[in-house]
Amino acid sequence: MTLNWKIGGLLLGLVFFMAVVLVKPIGVSTQFVILDGIVADIANPELVTQTEDGYTSTNAYLAKSNGKYAKSIANPLNYSFVFVLAMIAGAFLSTLARGGISKDEKRLPEIWYANYGDTPMKRYAVAFLGGFIVLYGARLAGGCTSGHMMSGMMQTSISGYIFAAGAFAAAIPVAMFMYKEEA
């Protein structure tokens, strides 16, 4: 069972709209920094400390914005972190709802198999590398596609439109390079 892309797009737009109206714009890349900080704080309990004025960190990046990141590390059950966990849980539940993944089922588009075959290690390596590059770029830009492009464009932010143009200007040539053979 698949969801029609038009209905999916409308549902996604509704979720983004409701998030902005009820809580705040959606963005998730910062939560990877928060997760790293939670792990680092377990290894080094002196990484994040509470002061009279709030929270701070021995790490300059985590201490910036008046300790906003340090506070999120000390109290991770906030809207943004729970939202990321809910995305993971939602993907898992969606997979279960459509019957799970069978060994015989093709999990990727045919164009992937035409270009790269069915080698799991190659698939994992490309997914990891792609994810690393996107996350690195998101942190370099100060936000991810969810925050800059999706939420930003929905709020008619000029930077959102510029980010979207840059994302597509990079994604189209990369896709053309990666998928030379047609399915």
Rank of each mutant, 00 (worst) to 15 (best):
K122P: 05
A86N: 10
F17Q: 11
V23Q: 06
Y179Q: 11
L135P: 08
A63F: 13
A74Y: 00
Y124C: 08
G27E: 07
A171P: 07
F16T: 05
E181Y: 08
E110W: 04
I133E: 12
L62K: 02
A70Q: 01
K103Y: 02
E105F: 01
Y61F: 10
G9E: 06
P25N: 08
S80F: 00
I7L: 15
I38D: 11
S151V: 06
Y69N: 04
I101Y: 07
G67T: 01
V33M: 09
Y61L: 11
A70C: 05
N44Q: 15
G160Q: 04
M1L: 13
L22R: 07
Q31E: 09
E52I: 00
M18C: 12
A40V: 06
I73E: 05
S151Q: 06
I133L: 15
E46P: 01
Y69L: 11
S157A: 12
L96I: 15
K71F: 02
L22V: 06
K71N: 01
S57D: 01
A167P: 03
Y79N: 02
I158M: 12
Y113C: 08
S80W: 00
V33G: 03
R107F: 01
A19Y: 01
N4F: 14
A165C: 13
A91M: 08
V21I: 13
K180T: 14
S157I: 01
R139T: 12
G152N: 05
T30V: 05
A19D: 07
V126M: 13
Y116G: 08
T119N: 15
A60M: 08
M176T: 10
M153K: 04
F83C: 03
W5F: 14
L22I: 08
K6N: 10
A138R: 01
M176Q: 13
I88K: 02
A171C: 11
A125Y: 09
L10I: 14
W112D: 03
V20D: 09
K106M: 11
F83D: 02
D53I: 03
E105C: 01
A86C: 13
N66W: 01
V39F: 10
L62Q: 02
I111G: 04
Y136W: 13
M176L: 14
F163W: 09
M153A: 09
I162Y: 07
A70G: 04
Q50L: 06
